[in-house]
Design a protein around this nucleic acid. Structure first.
Lengths: 146, 146
DNA sequence: ATGGGACCTGTAGCCGCTACAGCTTCAAGG
DNA sequence: CCTTGAAGCTGTAGCGGCTACAGGTCCCAT
C-alpha cells in the first residue's frame, strides 16, 4: 500500500486551509513565523501550498488552542506527537494534567467573581436607589476574594 | 466638622500607595499614563504625592480589575462613581450585568474545557500505553466544544 | 556630607493574534 | 491572449494590561 507523495493529492492554498481549520489566513502565517507550523511548499510566485499533513497539524494546533494551551505548550505537544512513544505520551499526560490544574484554578477564580458580581447586581436591582450599593461594594468592601 | 484639606493628613509617596493597594509602583504609574488615575501632586524633585482620595480611587480600580472589568469598563465605572445618582447607578448596574454575562460565558467555556481535559488525562492515566489517546484526541476528535 | 534606597522618565518586551499598506500572482471569463 | 478581481505576498504596527529594564535623580537617616 504505497500512498504517500501521491501526485493526485491536491495541495491547498492558504485560504482553503483557513476555511478547513476555522483559522484566519493571517493566523496561519503567524503560526509559521512563530515556529509552530513549518514553512510549506510554494508556487513559482511564492504562494504557500499545504499538504494534508499540514492540514492535520493545523487541526491539532487549533484544538489545543481552543482548549487553552499556550503556544509554548502547543509546541511541546507537537514535539510529543512527532516522536510518539511511551515517553512522549507520559510527557503529554503531564502537560495536560498541569493545564487541567490551571483551568481548574481559573474556574475557581471565575466562580468567586461570579458570586461577587451576582451579589453586586442584585444589591441594586434597578438603579432606583439614591445610593449605589454596587459602587459602594467596589469602593469600600474588603473583597479579598483571591 | 471641617475635615478636608487637613494639613495633618499625610501625603503618600508612590511606594506606600503600592503597599496599601497591593499594586506595583509601575502599575500605578501605568494607570496614570492610561488616564485612569489623575496626575497627583509632586514634591520639588518630581516625586509623586498621593492623597487619601487617590488611595481610595486606587482601591476601587484594583477591586474592579480583580473582578475582571477591563480598563475601559473601570473608566466607565469611575465616571459613574464620580457623579453618583440614579442615572449613573443604573449605568453601573448595566455594566456589571453585562460583565456578569461575560464571566458566565467564560465559566461555561472553561467547564467544557475542564471536561475535555479531564477525559484526555483519564484516557491515558499513566502513559504506559503504546498509543497516546491524549494526542489522538487532539489529532482526530471533532472537539467542536464551543 | 554621605550612602543607599526610593523614585524619576522613557523604552522595549510579553502573548497571540489582528489589521492594515502596498504590492504581486493566480485563475476564470471574454 | 488579455483583462480583471480575488487571493496571496511581505512587513510593520497595534491591541490590552501590564512588567522589566536602563540610566539617571532625589530623599532622608545617620
Amino acid at each position: 500500500m504505497r500512498a504517500e507523495a501521491d501526485e493526485t493529492t491536491p495541495l491547498l492554498p492558504i485560504g482553503a486551509l483557513a476555511k478547513h481549520t476555522g483559522l484566519t489566513v493571517e493566523g496561519i502565517r503567524f503560526y509559521e513565523k512563530a515556529g509552530i507550523l513549518r514553512a510549506p511548499a510554494r508556487t513559482a510566485g511564492q504562494h504557500r501550498l499545504y499538504s494534508r499533513a499540514d492540514l492535520k497539524r493545523l487541526h491539532f494546533i487549533r484544538r489545543a488552542r481552543l482548549l487553552g494551551f499556550t503556544l509554548d505548550e502547543v509546541r511541546a505537544l507537537l514535539r510529543f506527537a512527532d516522536h510518539v512513544g511511551a515517553r512522549s505520551c507520559a510527557d503529554a499526560h503531564g502537560l495536560a494534567t498541569k493545564h487541567l490544574g490551571d483551568v481548574r484554578a481559573k474556574l475557581t477564580d471565575l466562580r468567586k467573581m461570579e458570586k461577587v458580581l451576582r451579589g453586586m447586581v442584585a444589591s441594586c436591582a434597578d438603579g432606583t436607589l439614591p445610593e449605589c450599593p454596587l459602587i459602594e461594594t467596589l469602593s469600600d468592601s474588603e473583597l479579598d476574594f483571591r
